[in-house]
Design a protein around this nucleic acid. Sequence first.
DNA 1: CAAATTGTCGACCGGAATATTCGAAAATTT
DNA 2: AAATTTTCGAATATTCCGGTCGACAATTTG
Lengths: 193, 193
Amino acid sequence: MINKEEFRKKVIISAGQIFSRYGFKKTTMDEIAKALKMGKSSIYYYFKCKEEIFEAVVLYEANILRNQLTNSIKSVESPVEKLKNYVFVRMKAFEKLSNYYNAIFDKNLDHFDFIERIRSKYDREELAMLRLIMYHGARMKVFNVANSEYTALAVQTALKGLEVPLFWKKREVNIEERLNGILDVLFNGILKK
Amino acid sequence: MINKEEFRKKVIISAGQIFSRYGFKKTTMDEIAKALKMGKSSIYYYFKCKEEIFEAVVLYEANILRNQLTNSIKSVESPVEKLKNYVFVRMKAFEKLSNYYNAIFDKNLDHFDFIERIRSKYDREELAMLRLIMYHGARMKVFNVANSEYTALAVQTALKGLEVPLFWKKREVNIEERLNGILDVLFNGILKK
DNA sequence: CAAATTGTCGACCGGAATATTCGAAAATTT
DNA sequence: AAATTTTCGAATATTCCGGTCGACAATTTG
């Protein structure tokens, strides 16, 4: 291997797929090793413990999500489209990530405080992005928002409401439907008539 | 509970969902019990062991599949449609079932010989269905098959080829695409010009 | 080349998780 | 109220799995 960092990334990607399928607890080091065609012990040369791998995976995925979101709003001009894109990409990502969360909320609440740190950092970033969208929409006289800060917060809260059924395994509920509902209400309450 | 059989069915359905998600090994009796809102020990009143539950689940699912397949070919008249329906239903089912198999093929090859028994019985039934379709198609002068027995065997072999990437976790490959490819080739080689 | 460093791995350990048992007791039937 | 069926908590037995260790292969250094 040329580079230690290089190999760590390989592990992260490989382990990420398994974690996302089975969650933290149900994923074994043996599986990760086998997926890498490697002895289990070798992995410990690159990572201190299983938890460290998980942490790296979450960090990595969070980064990808951030980029996807940024791109999704840069790719269109209209504020409406920006918001729509943002919300859809976000939901898609969280749907995929729900497995990670299911695993965490199981028991190990004490450990994994790093998840909370990532989460709150991400929350702040999200708020900034949403505020930007709101501000931009207001500037272009498409949105009717008095205070973009507060409106962004409201939107964020609504989006979080969508996560709940995603993580609380009530899969029957059609998320897409709800999402469209929220967007509909949102726009009709926000758009200039 | 009115009836022991009734309750066994409840267990089978509930456990089936968990097995299909996590496979045999990664599914715990605790999870099954919790899903049933029941003490773990109570389940042992109805089933001898975890393996017996799994066996019952597989049996149950195989039965459902058989019915779905029978219905799918009864629901249309045209031989082409019959074959198409059959193949699609079959693939859909196997996609769903792939988790069971992943779990089994992992290590426990010694146990679970009952799977092989089910499998070979199912194979024979499938062959019979396919032969019927072939025969019917020939009768209606839509298919150009000399020996429906051999043609059915060929079709079955092709279908099994589709399973491989399904179970061997090469999820990237688009199965639907391959399936359409196979059907295309199949019909153009089989249909009367 | 040899010494040092880096990387890989099999074998092993101990604690945790988990399947299964058991007896007691609740619930239901007789 | 006795008998039977069903449930369950606690205990047990067993397997699993994260992590360690030392040997050694591979590579680098000098």
